[in-house]
Design a protein around this nucleic acid. Structure first.
Lengths: 247, 247
DNA sequence: TAACCCTGTTTCACTATGTGAAACAAGAGA
DNA sequence: TCTCTTGTTTCACATAGTGAAACAGGGTTA
């Protein structure tokens, strides 16, 4: 009564039911009801509807449910050949809203990285990240990601091509890369821009090929080392999810 | 009031909305409302629900909708390593109901083919196809499919291994195979069993590898050459769809 | 500028629609 | 046999979803 309903409860419940299947297991009616926190009757009707449209099939032998072929039909028609830049925009916005800092997307172009997309934090003090900017590849969180998670052959070639500035020690850098591969994310504090810090994670496409780095950046006093570590999982997962959208 | 509702209207409508996106295009609210035959208001609420769960994203620039990442999440967890035999069962049943004849699934095992799944027609006179039956590979519609669409190297090896019975002319057989590759389906009339006819099409998995043959078989007076030609497209498409379910 | 389209969005009264408790049926163990 | 489970059906209730209509805003057109 207070606020208008702009959403349909039954539909959201049905989608929740669908999402119960994300682990790939087959589920019985009561399992689903438990997982989704809904009544058996309700779930039964929702499943009947899902089944009638082929989103779910029930194994006639065990009476358990499984995702149906319709999912493939839809997945097949997912616009996967779009540029990541536009395709991932909604995801970037979501992450920005969750963390409240500027979020950028980088791809590697030779020995440079290019910011192909960015959504700005809306805090007063924020990292301003112009799209299209080209930056060197040997410094910054996303740079390290774009090298660390590249296939070994490419990585070695890149490292051999880099002209190491006096400030960078190659061995130290290599050990950093190994550490980053272990952690799954990279951070940088005032590496390139004074007062700026960043966390980045790799985005792999569905063929498990590194395609981009997802970075969250902000002022280093707000984006402290602790905060970055805290956000790391969120960012890694967002990057994973984005990867599933790219072919 | 007559018969009980065992299904949820709002959910089915929402799924219909999702299915509007099968062609991969982006759609505006009114386009969707038109396609689905629903009210704008209704579609708006359904879309809001779909969007809140990530099944659909709206492009902030154009206000058009597109399928969301959740579809991939689900597709990724689709049980693709299941045996085709159980996975495709619902599809086989659907095809059986469409055509009204017995539908079988064959895989090749060396120089034999094995019927790994079948759903029987429910007509009085029908082809009875026991699951597990092993049949020779040089005769019958599915046999020809299982040879014709195999990769060339394998195909040649098979042809060289076959001991040609006097009734079969190798050159004629080879030209038949070429014709079948062109048509995309194969037929057989009383080749193996007197009074029986069959149409078959190849099932390729998502890696475009031949995995099985889908066959519709029945009495040759009901499943005439004309009828088989008429059903060919249906069968070919069913086989394609089944293929998308297999990895 | 104003008049007209189109969009997408909000409001609102109505009742059809979806809901969950409870009763039921049918196996599977013990 | 009895007792837990399943999945399924029934049913009374009011909530939750509906669609007509009005609204807001952005483009075109004249």
């Amino acid at each position: 009564m207070e606020d208008q309903k702009l959403t349909v409860r039954a539909v959201e419940r049905a989608l929740d039911v669908l999402l119960c299947f994300t682990d790939g297991r087959m589920l019985s009616l009561t399992e689903i009801a438990g997982k989704a926190g809904l009544h058996k009757s309700t779930v039964l009707r929702l499943l009947a509807s899902l089944e009638s449209k082929g989103f779910v099939v029930r194994d006639t032998a065990t009476d358990k449910y499984r995702l149906g072929f319709r999912i493939w039909e839809l997945a097949a028609s997912l616009s996967g050949d779009d540029e990541p830049a536009v395709l991932l925009l909604p995801e970037l916005e979501r992450l920005r809203d969750q963390i409240g800092e500027t979020v950028s997307l980088y791809i590697r172009d030779g020995l440079e990285r290019v910011r192909i997309q960015a959504v700005q934090s809306n805090q007063a003090i924020r990292r301003v990240a112009p799209v299209g900017a080209r930056l060197p590849i040997y410094v910054g969180a996303s740079s390290k990601i774009l090298i660390a998670f590249e296939e070994e052959a490419v990585r070695e070639q890149l490292l051999s091509q880099l002209e190491w500035p006096p400030s960078v020690d190659e061995l130290l850098f290599r050990s950093q890369l190994a550490e980053i591969r272990g952690l799954g994310y990279a951070t940088s504090v005032e590496e390139r821009e004074p007062g700026a810090a960043a966390v980045a994670a790799p985005i792999f496409n569905r063929s498990h090929k590194l395609v981009a780095a997802l970075a969250v950046s902000g002022p280093s006093n707000r984006l402290t080392t602790d905060k970055m570590r805290e956000h790391a999982d969120l960012i890694i997962n967002a990057a994973k999810r984005m990867g599933t959208m790219l072919r």
